[in-house]
Simulated assay, not measured.
Amino acid sequence: MASAESSKPACPVCDQTDQVKTMQAAYNSGVARCAPPDMPTRNVSMMKPITICGVFVGICLFLIITLIGGMETGFPQIAQLILVVFTLIFIVTALAVSYWAFQRVVRGDNETVELYPAWDKATAQWKSLYYCSRDDIVFDPKTNTQVSNNQLASLRASATQTIKKELQAAAQH
């Protein structure tokens, strides 16, 4: 049975395997440039519109509750009707804004899911690389070549770059 040491590829600079680590092991030991690719995410906020609508509905409900107490004092009937109509409009508007905000979140999630294949590809490529702590290099054992810091950075940001390209393309249309 072959040991784990013999299955490691040799470093292209020093041609030894004793200091060669997987990218995950190098990142876990504190080598920041060996970080895995960023998982694509979308941060779609829905709290601001929901909070504003909630405040308007709360104000209207407060006014209706005070209106119930004001019925005994002879609050004008037309003012009562106007208050009820505004309250219903605010409640329906709050429901519509909630639906719109939820749809934005769902759309953002769907866009993120579409980016997972690019992230999976970048992660698979990242996992195939190795790090030599003796020479402080990252290398690809398939081609036996050193990977530059710029190549590592572009690999880490590949899914994020795809998001930026899609946003720019959508903004141009």
Rank of each mutant, 00 (worst) to 15 (best):
S7A: 14
K8M: 10
A10D: 14
C11G: 04
P12A: 02
V13W: 08
Q16H: 13
T17P: 04
A25P: 03
Y27L: 07
N28Q: 13
S29W: 06
V31W: 00
R33T: 10
R33E: 14
D38G: 12
P40T: 02
S45K: 06
M47H: 10
P49A: 02
I52Q: 11
G54N: 00
V55M: 10
V57M: 04
G58S: 01
I59H: 03
C60A: 11
F62D: 07
I64N: 07
I64E: 11
I64H: 06
I65D: 05
T66C: 14
T66R: 12
T66E: 15
T66V: 12
I68M: 12
G74N: 00
I78P: 04
L81V: 09
L83A: 08
L83H: 03
V85N: 01
I89S: 02
I91V: 11
T93G: 10
A94V: 00
A94R: 00
A94F: 03
W100G: 11
F102P: 05
Q103F: 08
V105D: 02
V106R: 08
N110G: 08
T112C: 10
V113Q: 13
L115Q: 05
K121T: 10
A122I: 01
A124H: 09
W126S: 04
K127W: 05
S128V: 00
S128D: 03
L129V: 01
S133M: 07
D136E: 15
V138C: 11
V138A: 10
F139M: 05
F139Q: 05
D140Y: 04
D140P: 07
T143Y: 00
N144K: 14
T145I: 07
S148P: 03
N149G: 11
A153W: 09
A153E: 13
L155V: 02
R156L: 05
A157N: 15
S158G: 04
A159M: 03
A159K: 02
T160Q: 15
K164T: 15
L167N: 15
A169L: 08
A170G: 07
H173C: 09
